[in-house]
Design a protein around this nucleic acid. Structure first.
Lengths: 225, 225
DNA sequence: ATTTATGTTCAGCGAATGTTCAGTTGCGTG
DNA sequence: CACGCAACTGAACATTCGCTGAACATAAAT
């Protein structure tokens, strides 16, 4: 198992390196974002541990860039205590878990093991489809890296379709997904939400994300990119 | 698909049961670890959903025991929010994925489907017959890799015949399949739909996909290729 | 209490689809 | 070969479905 460790605090870096190596990981280290990013793009890592505060390129940007380049290995971010924003930013950028400093080496190892095992099943909170991406943990939605603000229902609709790319889904099923109990069927809520979603995601209909299949339902087109 | 659901919160249990059943799973439920473990050892499940906090025997132990007895079906653990220890423990015990409460039924389904698919080597929604192919999920239809746009009824007809290749099907049966209730019999709707289908799939009748058996019905010819 | 965001309902429109019809074709049987 | 019936065909007609803008209702935020 090969790891990428990005940490600029040299003492901490060496300490972690020791721990991880002892746990039979092959560790590559870097002390700044640029070097780290380069390495992350270059080598087939099984996971990365990235500190938020890095010189040259900060950790968040490194994560974003790696995800943009379709690097899917799990990422664990290290944040300072009480820095709630950093955690959120990290998860938004595509990290899979976070750890607050200070922490025990054991804790790090446990989480890392879990992440790696889980990633074998490819359960990343970040779902991408061409220029469209959503984060099922932070509920962040982006089109071409532009954040889109969606209402709760709009998000639910989109999430469902992102989890079922290219599958036709009837309005009845979509309704069930938005409302806990069953709902009045001869309402056109779904149509209205779809309308608003389309408008927000793609005002000029450049992409045609959401397609209508008359008599069947809607589907979110898979975009290659 | 048969599932084992171990959850001691009765409300949640029933809710999940409803969702899963609606998604065509056959669900066995249990509210404590002992009963659950017994069932897990006894029946051939396709997957299990296990809450960490269970009476009598806790979820982690159940998972460990199942794995020890070489039960290989995928296991999804449910954990409380912020309890990363539980997640780690669950994954270490042999679970394949985790889900943090509260969650949407759909997210559960998506993960579950992913797990099962991964463990079983997916069944394809793609049906091919020579140059003709349909996708029963996306409802995409192609002839020689050229996408063909069909109306709802046209698609239903084609799907039925693709699922019954080389079988003669009477107009009455086809009618029943398109309409929920029975329909006026002395109408020539089917003929009209067949006509339109033929035109769209094969304008010059190069292949002769749909054959007429006078007095009996239609059949979709199996094409070698 | 007021404003703002979100959810829900409604009605008109137009295109896509479904349905009917009438004339034509052509197979199969006598 | 001729007849009758089943299927074919093109077009007209009818209807449904989804789209849309807006209004109204309710919930959340200030």
């Amino acid at each position: 198992m090969r790891l990428l460790l990005l940490e600029d605090d040299i003492a901490l870096q060496q300490n972690l390196n020791k721990h991880l190596t002892a746990a039979n990981y092959l560790v590559d280290v870097a002390s700044d974002g640029e070097t780290g990013l380069f390495q992350g793009l270059e080598y087939p890592y099984d996971a990365a541990i990235i500190d938020i505060g890095l010189p040259i390129i900060d950790g968040i940007s490194v994560i974003k860039f790696l995800r943009e380049k379709n690097k899917t290995f799990p990422i664990l971010v290290l944040t300072a205590r009480n820095s709630w924003q950093d955690k959120v930013a990290g998860l938004d950028a595509g990290a899979d878990d976070y750890l607050t400093k200070p922490f025990h080496g054991e804790e790090l190892l446990a989480r890392l093991n879990a992440l790696i095992r889980r990633s074998a099943g490819q359960a990343s909170p970040l779902i991408k489809n061409g220029p469209l991406s959503i984060n099922t943990k932070s509920l962040n939605v982006e089109v071409n890296n532009q954040v889109i603000k969606l209402s709760s229902s709009e998000y639910k609709l989109l999430e469902y379709m992102m989890l079922h790319l290219d599958e036709v889904t009837s309005k009845a099923v979509l309704t069930e997904h938005i409302y806990d109990q069953d709902f009045d069927l001869d309402s056109n809520v779904i149509e209205v939400f779809v309308r608003r979603l389309r408008k927000k995601l793609d005002p000029n209909n450049d992409y045609g994300f959401i397609q209508t299949l008359r008599g069947h339902g809607y589907k979110l087109k898979r975009v290659s990119q």
